[in-house]
Measured scan of single mutants.
Amino acid sequence: DEFHFHWNGRDIRVRGDSEELRRLIEAIKRGELSEEEIERAIEILER
């Protein structure tokens, strides 16, 4: 699976399928994380 979302003017695409990944992306979409937490998560996910 590939998750695709927009954040902070960026087009983010992440491959993978796990419950943890889904929860993280939902939290990002709901605005539950700080900008710094989101940046760090995206860096890890894009590897």
Rank of each mutant, 00 (worst) to 15 (best):
I25H: 03
E43Y: 06
E19H: 10
R40A: 14
K29G: 10
R30F: 13
R30C: 06
E20C: 04
R47D: 15
F3S: 03
E32A: 12
E36M: 10
E19D: 12
F3W: 11
E35T: 11
A41G: 03
F3V: 07
I28P: 00
R15D: 15
E37G: 07
E26R: 12
I25C: 02
R13L: 15
S34P: 05
E37V: 03
A27K: 14
G16W: 05
I42R: 01
G9I: 00
W7D: 00
E43F: 04
E36L: 12
N8V: 01
E32Y: 10
F5C: 02
F5L: 06
E32V: 10
R22A: 11
L33Y: 07
D1E: 15
H6P: 02
S18H: 07
R40K: 14
E19N: 09
A27M: 13
R10D: 02
I12M: 02
I42E: 01
R23S: 13
K29A: 09
S18Q: 09
L33P: 02
G9A: 01
G9R: 00
D11Q: 05
L33N: 02
I28V: 05
R22Y: 12
R47W: 12
E19S: 09
S34Q: 06
E39Y: 06
L21G: 10
E39F: 06
E46Q: 06
E35V: 13
I28A: 03
I25V: 14
E36Q: 13
L24R: 00
W7I: 05
G31F: 07
R47Y: 14
L21F: 14
H6D: 04
R30Y: 11
E26T: 11
R13Q: 13
L24I: 10
I38P: 00
E36A: 13
R30V: 08
E32L: 11
F3I: 10
H4W: 12
I42C: 01
S18T: 15
L33S: 03
R10W: 02
I44C: 06
E20D: 13
E39L: 09
I28L: 07
E39Q: 08
L33T: 03
E35R: 09
R47I: 15
E20F: 11
G16E: 08
D17G: 05
E26A: 10
I12F: 14
D17C: 03
R30K: 14
G16R: 04
R15Q: 15
F5A: 00
G9M: 01
H6F: 08
E35I: 10
E36T: 10
W7A: 02
S18M: 06
S34D: 09
L33I: 07
K29N: 12
R13K: 15
D1H: 11
L21Q: 12
D11S: 05
E37T: 03
R10C: 04
D17E: 10
F5R: 00
L45A: 02
E37W: 03
R30L: 12
E43C: 07
R13G: 06
L21N: 15
I12L: 03
E43W: 05
L24Y: 04
N8P: 00
S18W: 06
L45D: 01
W7M: 03
E35W: 08
N8W: 02
E43Q: 08
L21K: 15
L45C: 00
F3K: 03
H4A: 07
N8H: 05
S34A: 09
F3T: 04
R23E: 14
G16A: 12
W7P: 00
R23K: 13
E2M: 09
E19R: 07
D1S: 09
E46S: 04
L33C: 04
I38H: 02
R10N: 04
I28C: 02
D1L: 11
E32W: 10
I38L: 09
D1C: 06
G31R: 03
D17Y: 05
I25Y: 05
L45Y: 06
E46L: 14
E43S: 07
S34E: 06
R30G: 15
R10L: 05
E26F: 10
H6Q: 10
H4I: 15
D1K: 10
E36R: 09
I44Q: 08
E26K: 10
L33F: 08
E2K: 04
L33V: 05
L33D: 01
K29C: 07
I25A: 06
E46R: 03
I25M: 08
I12N: 00
E19Q: 12
R10E: 04
W7Q: 01
D11F: 10
I38T: 10
D11K: 06
W7E: 00
S34F: 04
G16T: 09
E36N: 08
F5Q: 00
E26Q: 14
E46Y: 05
G16F: 05
V14T: 03
S18K: 09
E46I: 13
F3C: 03
V14N: 01
I12H: 04
E36H: 09
S18R: 09
D17N: 13
E19K: 09
I25K: 03
E36D: 12
R23P: 08
R10K: 11
N8A: 07
R22L: 13
S34M: 08
I28W: 05
R22N: 09
W7S: 01
I42D: 00
D11G: 02
E39P: 03
D1Y: 11
L24F: 10
A27N: 08
I44K: 09
G16V: 13
R40L: 13
I44V: 10
E20A: 11
R13T: 15
E46W: 04
E32T: 14
E32G: 11
R22P: 02
I44P: 01
I44S: 08
I42Q: 01
L45E: 01
A27C: 04
N8G: 08
E36Y: 09
V14D: 02
E20V: 11
R40P: 02
V14E: 01
R10F: 03
I44E: 14
S34N: 12
R23A: 15
A27T: 10
G9D: 05
I28R: 01
R40W: 10
E37M: 06
R10S: 04
E43M: 07
E37F: 04
K29R: 12
R13W: 15
F3P: 03
I38R: 02
R13C: 11
E43G: 04
R10Y: 04
S34T: 13
I28H: 03
H6Y: 08
I38K: 02
F5W: 06
I38F: 05
E37Y: 03
I28M: 06
G9H: 03
R23V: 13
E19C: 03
I25F: 07
E36W: 11
A41L: 10
D17I: 04
L33E: 01
L33K: 03
E19P: 14
I12K: 00
I28K: 01
R15W: 15
F3D: 04
G31E: 07
E32F: 09
R22Q: 12
W7Y: 11
R13V: 15
